[in-house]
Amino acid sequence: MSTCAREMAGVGQLGARCFGGAFVKMQNPADPRHARREPADDRPRRPAVFLDRDGVLNVDKAYVHRIDDFEWVQGAREAVKLCNDLGYYVFVVTNQSGVARGYFGVDDIHRLHDWMNRELGAIGAHIDDFQYCPYHEEGTVEAYRRVSDRRKPAPGMILDCLKTWPVRIEGSLLVGDNIRDIEAAVAAGIPGHLFREGDLAAFLRPLLTARS
């Protein structure tokens, strides 16, 4: 399930049914003769780098959600490109309890993440998937006030990436700036590395070289 669909489900805007068998794509829904099976996922199975956002990719200024307030960490864009060039999937996994606290909405998160990928695209880099958790058990916005298995240190966001993408666990890793990031990585079965400050590309390069 995509992040957008997950959030719609969380506020009661999306329902689902379970069906047996394979999915088919209908070119003409009125004529089942045009139905065809979806091809198997032929994306290459390769390791992934999971990155926390605030404090790893951008300077943590507390509940960053506006483009004007966003400041890349030194070497962050280069770190993402390094991962791309070495053949890693790149995923962002970020707690965003500001939604539950009423500081901003999910649209603000999507807008910022889209902008981040445009910025990365200027140097030939990209993030494959953004996973975020808008929930908090003490939130002031009722729709998002709950415990979530996607909120780190729970591993839900990482596990969702592993289910959605053809990730090879061997060689995968996470970089975070908080112990809860590391705990989430361990719970998901991948190593976690604590990044406090400095140049992210310089920090990441020997980790990737050692695992390649």
Rank of each mutant, 00 (worst) to 15 (best):
V11F: 08
V49N: 01
I179L: 11
N28F: 08
F130R: 09
K81V: 03
D41Y: 09
A35E: 04
A100C: 07
H113M: 08
R66D: 08
D69Q: 11
E71F: 11
H113T: 04
P47R: 01
D85G: 10
L194F: 15
P29H: 09
P134N: 05
S97R: 12
G12M: 07
V147S: 14
T164L: 13
V167H: 10
D177Y: 12
F195L: 06
G75D: 03
V106D: 01
R211E: 02
R101Q: 11
V175K: 02
D199N: 15
N95W: 10
K61N: 09
Y144N: 06
R37L: 14
G189W: 02
R146C: 14
D54L: 03
R146H: 12
G176R: 00
S172P: 08
V11L: 06
A62G: 05
R150A: 02
C161H: 01
R145P: 00
D54Y: 07
R145D: 03
V49T: 09
V175C: 14
R150S: 03
T140V: 15
A122F: 01
L200W: 04
C161T: 00
D149Y: 10
D177G: 13
L120I: 12
R151M: 07
D60N: 15
K61F: 08
D107W: 02
G12F: 10
M26A: 15
P134F: 09
W115A: 15
D42H: 13
D114S: 14
M8W: 11
R46S: 02
H34M: 12
D199M: 07
K163C: 07
P191W: 06
A202L: 13
R33Q: 08
L51M: 11
V73L: 01
C18F: 12
R66W: 05
P206E: 01
L208G: 04
Y88G: 01
A100Y: 03
V186M: 05
Y144C: 02
A201L: 07
L112P: 01
P166V: 06
A143R: 12
K81S: 07
E71P: 04
I127K: 03
A5M: 12
